[in-house]
């Protein structure tokens, strides 16, 4: 989807999130010289176009009680990696699942799953369960627990609208 300057301005205005007021889209528009209907129309179009993956609460999983997280990775032959990825992606315990390129010699793994749990033991149990259920025991595997979180700001997007355009 091709975003216009006005879309980018809206993306930028939403960087901190939606204002918690009864007419939030009107409030966002007021900063940009857009009326409520234009803001609603543009956000709907971005949602329908898949530019917005989802809209709502984004939680801090650690603060919510998911104190442990592990990147669980496997080295799966190219011929079957998509099939295995799809099956793992459908597992309710898996919070993210991607295929990525291996980087030899340091990194032979090509399938990445994020697993979050209350504590380390819970995550280990989940991973062991996935290995059993999906018969992954034969593939090289690693579980990388996180030891420190340095930054979790989320991505920043958007650019402010030029003054002249805002006044249109």
């Amino acid at each position: 989807m091709e975003l216009s300057d006005r879309d980018h301005a809206l993306v930028s205005a939403l960087a901190e999130g939606l204002p918690l007021v009864s007419h939030p889209y009107r409030a966002v528009g007021a900063q940009l010289g857009m009326d409520e209907a234009e803001v609603i129309g543009r956000i709907q179009a971005m949602r329908d176009g898949g530019v917005i993956r989802r809209f709502g609460i984004i939680v801090r999983h650690h603060e919510l009680g998911f104190k442990a997280n592990a990147m669980s990775v496997w080295s799966i032959p190219d011929a079957v990696v998509s099939e295995v990825g799809r099956r793992l992606g459908d597992a309710p315990e898996v919070t993210l699942c991607y295929r990525r390129p291996p980087r030899l010699p340091d990194w032979p793994y090509n399938l990445f799953c994020m697993i979050h749990g209350r504590d380390r033991a819970a995550v280990e149990e989940i991973v062991a369960g996935l290995v059993r259920r999906f018969d992954l025991g034969a593939y090289p595997h690693a579980v990388l627990f996180s030891t420190r979180r340095f930054k979790q700001t989320g991505a920043r997007y958007g650019r402010p609208i030029p003054r002249a355009a805002a006044a249109e």
Binding site: M1, E2, L3, V11, L14, E16, G17, L18, L20, I43, M46, R47, G49, G50, V51, I52, R53, R54, F55, G56, I57, I58, V59, R60, E63, L64, Y98, R100, R103, W107, F112, Q152, G154, A155, Y157
Partner: peptide
């Protein structure tokens, strides 16, 4: 929602963007 944000449970309330569909790039690096 305001209280949950203040308490740090909610990091943000709003859209989660799809970087590539905005014409951008996203990667994991090590």
């Amino acid at each position: 929602i305001r209280k949950l944000k203040e308490d740090g449970i909610i990091s943000r309330f709003g859209p989660m963007w799809h970087a590539e569909r905005m014409g951008g790039e996203l990667t994991l690096s090590a």
